[in-house]
Write a protein that binds this DNA or RNA. Structure first.
Lengths: 212, 212
DNA sequence: CCTAATCTGCAAACGGTGTTCGCAGTTTAA
DNA sequence: TTAAACTGCGAACACCGTTTGCAGATTAGG
């Protein structure tokens, strides 16, 4: 994890040579279109290059790996988190607003769930996200480390919810082997709780950011 | 998601033909050893077959795809969750114990973080896990749906913690672009909170399982 | 017991992937 | 003007999951 070799501080091109026919932004934009339409697995170097009318090998003039492309895609999507709410509301409300925006972002770009979960060096828009969350948490009286952890946990919970929205329901459970499970599944489900997301975020925040 | 074609109710072999030289369990065990040592990406059909002294194509006599193998690996690892705690302790303590066991499981098999996150039909040991959690939550007075959601959320938070333990620290943040972030990173971190995991799980449980 | 159906192991092949490399041509710095 | 550095490109490499065809072994049914 040498920061010097990261995609975020490597220049897009040198000063010599002919003008490049493409750009990082154009490549990333094409990859995002592809991922939105057909999922992250469809984002192959050949497919992205094909969308730009070139060959797979040519992309390596702009990126050093497919992982770089995924990092750039992730950061480009995080730019859609703007604008961030002001700090004039109670901080739990403001954080919940940010979390909701993020959940909508994950719905808009389902591939982000996988792309953002991958270990990677955070790009400028991810850093901006962290920075704004810290700003919203400024009135909270607790150690910085706890704030970091709380932000990371809220972010993670958003991904959990986004993931769960595409999950399959349980079915065909053996009532002998798993009695409690079968019983719970056989009971008619009462009214769905629409506020599950809000409750999760709020209880996590209050639990992790208690003063001390 | 036809349950009839799932790996969990397909017989391992028919009645005719010579005795097979391998077994699903042996294949899964070899794959787990490989994943423990070199990660999930190293679990290729060729590598697993090589560890068993055969060819990649031969594995398809026992499994129908690599996804099947990953499903079997996941369920095999979940078997290590046993034994489950009794229901004679307060349910938040019991659930926390289960969550801690799961975190240890994820530390032992880091590949499980990725394998279990993948959408898949739950195997018998995963169903058993759910069943035991529901048993522990039997004294709680709230809808079954809320219990399902709480269990899923606790499970997800465990994966979040397991993932975060392998993350890289932030570094080299521009104090002009991200003032709050740079300030928080420059302040000396106080004593680490060792009870972050417990607090997260407990606050989630209390927030999601409030009576009603 | 014999035949036919079925299974096993194996090696080769297919289409796909990310990535590297060499080459020809173009632009710029010195 | 020369040399360095860059561009695009296509072929190639080493993998990957999976399919297929075949020889040999086993078993079920008559």
């Amino acid at each position: 994890m040498r920061v010097g070799s990261s995609i975020w501080n490597r220049p897009e091109r040198g000063t010599r040579g002919p003008a490049p026919g493409h750009s990082r932004d154009a490549i990333v934009a094409a990859a995002v279109v592809l991922a939105d339409a057909e999922g992250l697995a469809a984002v192959s170097m050949r497919a992205v290059a094909g969308a730009l009318g070139t060959g797979a090998g040519s992309l390596y003039r702009y990126l050093s790996s497919r992982d770089d492309l995924l990092d750039l895609m992730t950061d480009a999507a995080m730019a859609e988190m703007r604008p961030y709410p002001d700090g004039d509301r109670p901080w739990p409300d403001a954080m919940l607003t940010v979390a909701r925006r993020q959940l909508e972002l994950y719905r808009r770009h389902r591939w982000l769930i996988d792309a953002a979960t991958r270990p990677a060096a955070p790009g400028p828009n991810v850093l901006e996200y962290f920075d704004h969350c810290l700003r919203l948490l400024a009135p909270v009286d607790c150690p910085d480390a706890a704030k970091f952890e709380a932000i990371a946990m809220v972010t993670g919970v958003v991904t959990l919810f986004a993931r769960s929205e595409g999950a399959y329901p349980l079915d065909g459970v053996d009532p002998v082997a798993h009695p409690h499970l079968a019983a719970a599944l056989s009971r008619p489900s009462s009214a769905p709780r629409t506020d599950l997301f809000d409750r999760s975020v709020r209880s996590l925040l209050s639990g992790l950011l208690a003063p001390g």
